[in-house]
Design a protein around this nucleic acid. Structure first.
Lengths: 152, 152
DNA sequence: ATAATTCCTCAAGTAAAGTTGAGGTCAATA
DNA sequence: TATTGACCTCAACTTTACTTGAGGAATTAT
């Protein structure tokens, strides 16, 4: 527990709130690159606290680990990211988030129409095509509207 | 391919766009309850088309299979759901969706503040607490703000 | 009647994001 | 110095939502 310029994995765990196993997993996925001391134990830079915090925030924004790894590859390794770095990345976050919000709002609008009609009939209900067809490539109803014989 | 009042699994697959294996999987999860013919093959009611379509829509709204199974348990088995059924369920959908949208909009607001400041410093950045702390119980930064020695 | 489909079950595989455990080593402390 | 606590690797397990494959039976089409 001596507080030197580098951190053990346990110290990093305490500082980030991540479990030790999660940090090892993130190393495996290329999110952090600790060095090893003489005894083979991981030693992290203090800047890795910020790096892992970035991971947590990015996950909150809906990015996968591999997407986050790609974003981190564009960030400096041992020093703080520049304002330009952050501007670029935050724009990506914003676009990602906007798209998700818009999709959900479209869905909500269709649902509102459908609460009113209460049909659920498959004949014309907007909900049965509500999703972004392109967003779920390969799955979902192909021609649900073909169900012409159903009462209600 | 004779068009009788019941459907084979392949016919149901054609009508819903779901794969045959997915329909079997959904049966296993309790979403549909086909009967068997003399030869042991599954026979579905025509109303199961609507039932499975409901599953697809509910997934679009972010419900898990087991949550959908719970909702379907409250629906009539061989006949069409009533308007009251649909009203109750669509309110649940709406609440679920509203919560997700609100969470993302809060996140977006914080991001906007953060694009302006460009700090990423951990000292005061709103993003590092942006998520619904209660929504990710058991994970996430516990006291990231303790990182007091970092430049930038 | 026979071939071609479709269907059956059951086991295993896939991806994501980690966790858990076994067996053993390193480091800080009394 | 001895011991406790932190760390190491590697393999296997967890969950969700399915898919894939093997080996075989039922149905449909010719």
């Amino acid at each position: 527990m001596k507080s030197s310029s580098v951190l053990s994995i346990g110290e990093l765990s305490d500082r980030t709130g991540l479990s030790v196993s999660a940090i090892r997993f993130y190393e495996e996925k290329g999110l952090v690159h600790p060095i090893r001391n003489a005894g083979g134990q991981r030693r992290f830079l203090r800047s890795d606290i910020r790096r892992l915090s970035f991971v947590l925030v990015a996950q909150e924004f809906g990015f996968s680990i591999s997407e986050i790894a790609d974003q981190l590859k564009q960030l400096p390794e041992g020093r703080a990211p520049t304002k330009a770095d952050w501007t670029r990345i935050s724009r990506e976050f914003r676009a990602h988030l906007d798209a998700r919000i818009e999709k959900m709002i479209r869905l909500r609008d269709k649902l509102d129409g459908c609460i009113g009609c209460g049909c659920l009939s498959m004949k014309s209900c907007a909900l049965y095509n509500a999703g972004d067809a392109a967003a779920r490539h390969g799955r979902g109803p192909r021609y649900l509207m073909g169900d012409t014989s159903d009462a209600v």
